[in-house]
């Protein structure tokens, strides 16, 4: 489902030097699989996810998602592929504060296959927010906001869900609940899940855990 070969990305440091951040020779994730990557802050995990999502363009290498070659696409093509096949859950939720809960989920659908109001409503009911459709994010708790983010990421029925420290802003109880919800909803929707975290308690919930340092050859 996700296949990566020879992926490299470097940034120019303030001193002008090329600094490699991601150097992944080979990485695969099967359809419906759930994998957690362990990595410390600054290890390049977010850059790795951004490359997979097409938010960043790779310097070299190939990323294939559900048969589509992300790295051969231009920016607009990557945007389209991301909207159609990838759900992204952020640590800080990244909800649009000016939109209601329902509108946030529908906005996620708008750039993909299209807005399906009933499905958006069903997703929010699935994450326990059926009674909060017209609320704005600021009117919700952090745990509820993360639930909205989960509903938004899965509303397009993506093939792959990327989760970047999704429980980093939650307390322990909410963290466990949110993680369980992410895993359940991915399973229900047949989406593969690639989660990155440095939190051992989060990682302990996964059967499959790999160290990001093992797959990323870029020097730290």
């Amino acid at each position: 489902m996700l296949a990566i070969r020879g992926l490299k990305k470097s940034f120019v440091s303030p001193e002008g030097a090329q600094t490699p951040v991601v150097d992944v020779a080979d990485f695969r994730l099967e359809a419906g699989a759930q994998l957690a990557l362990r990595g410390e802050s600054g290890s390049g995990k977010t850059t790795f996810l951004h490359l997979i999502a097409g938010i960043l363009a790779a310097d070299t290498g190939a990323i294939e998602i559900d048969g589509s070659a992300m790295t051969s696409l231009g920016e607009a093509g990557r945007d389209k592929l991301r909207a159609a096949k990838i759900g992204y859950i952020f640590q800080t939720f990244n909800l649009l504060q000016g939109l209601t809960v329902l509108e946030n989920v529908m906005t996620g659908m708008a750039f993909g296959p299209g807005v399906d109001r009933e499905h958006a409503r069903a997703m929010l009911e699935r994450v326990g927010l059926g009674a909060r459709l017209r609320h704005f994010p600021r009117q919700l708790s952090t745990g509820q906001q993360q639930r909205v983010a989960v509903a938004r990421a899965l509303a397009n029925r993506p093939k792959l869900v990327l989760a970047d420290e999704p429980t980093g802003n939650l307390d322990r109880k909410n963290s466990i609940e949110a993680l369980a919800l992410i895993r359940e909803t991915c399973r229900e929707n047949g989406a593969a899940l690639l989660l990155v975290s440095h939190d051992e308690q989060v990682l302990a919930q996964f059967e499959n855990v790999r160290d990001f340092a093992d797959i990323n050859a870029a020097p730290r």
Binding site: D79, K80, A84, N94, L96, Q97
Partner: peptide
């Protein structure tokens, strides 16, 4: 800036 980046991350194209 952040809202626009979120929209882009959700798949909105630059021209949108």
């Amino acid at each position: 800036r952040r809202d626009i980046a979120i929209l882009r991350a959700l798949g909105a194209r630059r021209r949108t």
